[in-house]
Amino acid sequence: MSWFKRIKEGITTSTKEKKETPEGLWYKCPSCKKISPTNEHAQNKYVCLNEECHYHEKIGSAEYFEILFDNNEFIELNDNLTAGDPLEFVDTKKYTDRLVDTAKKTNLKDALRTGHGKVEGEDLVIACMDFSFIGGSMGSVVGEKIARACDYCIENRIPLMIISKSGGARMMEAAFSLMQMAKTAAKLSLMSEAKVPYISFLTDPTTGGVTASYAMLGDLNIAEPQALIGFAGPRVVKETIGKDLPKGFQTSEFVLEHGFLDKIINRKELKAKLAQLLRMFKN
């Protein structure tokens, strides 16, 4: 029975010698629960390392620019634009305070950044939404940056890709934000007239006014796997029909099956396939 008995008393490692595990060393996939080292997960373009899972972690503009632009080199366009507060909107807190707090927390100026760089040597302007900025909501800044990106693309004859990730319109800008749908669609009609390619890339989630404007208007509509894509949110649809939603409702795969997407592309293959498409448009 002696091996049950502790011979040495107490914990003998002194506090000085204790090793702390550094924060954020491990990533746990919310879908398959597999644990993988953070750096490997990042190298895998933030896609779960489990081959059968392929869960695409939500990432922001910084990560997409790094994944897509050669050597992460790009010129950022119109990064001097920030939101106004035309309606002096106050809900549970003032909109101006919300903007300041969010900017501080996220180090972003609004929910979309635009950059001009090269993808395997091909020129491309990418407008990428950041979900971390008030749910990626579309307000005047998002609309204006897209409008200006369209002008830039038409002038320089460079294709445009918009990466959507948004809950929809920004309520704190009410009708101003509604009209950004009209504004972006109108600008895209000019892109279309000028025959400059526009690729819409839909990621998790893309809903509301973003789906009902630029996200669905690509010459090509492409999505990441398993993304939530829809006009009305699933909760609203469920309340409307008073039943549980079918499995896989409003996923990329569902939207492709119903004919509204050209392709679903895994993030790991995105850069190569995108470059291939850009060359196909060009040659």
Binding site: L81, T82, G84, V141, A147, M179, Q180, A182, K183
Partner: peptide, 9 residues
Amino acid sequence: FCAMGVVNE
């Protein structure tokens, strides 16, 4: 429609 919106520059 393109003139709609308020941004600080």
